[in-house]
Nucleic acid binder design. Sequence first.
DNA 1: CTGGTTTTCGTCTTCCAGGCGAAAACTCGA
DNA 2: TCGAGTTTTCGCCTGGAAGACGAAAACCAG
Lengths: 247, 247
Amino acid sequence: MAQGETEGPVGGSAVVSSAATGKDGGAAHEVLAVVFQIRQNRLSVLLWCRALPPFEGCWALPGGRLGATEGLGESVRRQLAQKVDVRDLSHLEQLETRGEPGRHPGGRTLATAYLGLVPAGIDPVVPHDTAWHPAAELPCMAFDHAAIVGSARRRLRAKLSYTNIGFALAPPEFTMSELSRYYRAALGHDVAATNLRRVLLRRGQIEETGRSVPSGRSGGRPAALFRFRTRSLEITDAFAVLRPPQG
Amino acid sequence: MAQGETEGPVGGSAVVSSAATGKDGGAAHEVLAVVFQIRQNRLSVLLWCRALPPFEGCWALPGGRLGATEGLGESVRRQLAQKVDVRDLSHLEQLETRGEPGRHPGGRTLATAYLGLVPAGIDPVVPHDTAWHPAAELPCMAFDHAAIVGSARRRLRAKLSYTNIGFALAPPEFTMSELSRYYRAALGHDVAATNLRRVLLRRGQIEETGRSVPSGRSGGRPAALFRFRTRSLEITDAFAVLRPPQG
DNA sequence: CTGGTTTTCGTCTTCCAGGCGAAAACTCGA
DNA sequence: TCGAGTTTTCGCCTGGAAGACGAAAACCAG
């Protein structure tokens, strides 16, 4: 039984990704990035303002056409390097791919979206058409980008529960009240610093550095500094509700 | 995690996917499906055997080229209709998109993989080159399809913990010992029927039908029949570890 | 030194899931 | 008809993890 998948000649070597929209068998493919950072205690997303139609004046996710010889993640990092320094990215993971035929007025375009995170505290230089917007109050958004930001928010919220992804939101060292503010911004609800500390310590996600910050002008006990034990994504295996027996 | 999947109507628009390989700015794009079913108490995946190079004689995931006017989910359902009846599919969600330049010897090809589920108990007619294989003992696999099956298994295992996705593995009505066998096959470890019952009842995922099956030849108390309350994906919100205050 | 502030620590309670064994309900054979 | 065997169901106990809360610690300012 012949599968649809017959192989043609290799063909497309050295294809220059023109600005034109692909219009034969292969549809155009772009990558997009939802880059989050906690800024002023709010979850914020990096957007750029479109100067040309379609969606002139609306805001869009950073991204662009997939290069002929690059992988998807590779492409996101390349395109993002024009917006934020790649080294600022503390985490990047694939989110979803959208391919509804009508999603792009300019012609059939598939988009693979990524979720990127930048630790709080740094302020990457961004181009003039680019700015951070609170994720809770999105401006006029181009294409289906508002929906993609929504997916990214849900993904981040869920992963804060059962992974150590907080490492990507927090700076290298932090106090517990800082961290609880980051979690509050990302989760959308209060998180008691005292409980957060116990939970993350028990899970082995964070550890004390031994140092502490001097108390501020208003007094108060000096806060201990913590750090995440690992800065790569790890799943809290205990989150599984139907566990294997024998624990 | 919570990948919601916005799915269009099933509409199998008769798009003739041309056999030509895309070779302009847009790379070729295909959709793949990891279709799982519990068969003989084993998690099994639907594969077809390639008769032509590359990977002649190896097994591949069902799928094919994305049609010019169809959405991604739409395309998967259309292509799957040739392998299993679309109405057999109890669940379908997007899994991941792979785009490494070298993943397809025949030329640059992006692939968006989906996770599909078929309830236990039915036996869809499949083409002659197509067969079910235990997911734990995959045969020689083409391309990166083995890795994709691995992703699908992990996704399914995780979602069994914090969603009601069991509805897609089980037949409309089932006994608790049946259901615990399905969970065992999918999770890879024992699941006590007595605990599973309490957990799923507490979560409101399943309910008693009131009827029961007569006990078998070997005797034993007749088993009550249960069903899932809803047959669409719902997230168990209580799974979140960092919950909002006030419960 | 005292009052105010912030962080830290310990305790209490609650919830939920796994383990286990007794009871229930049925078949089969004597 | 009665007892042995089998399978399911139910109730109780236990352990673990997390939210709530208040006391104690550590610091500043006046």
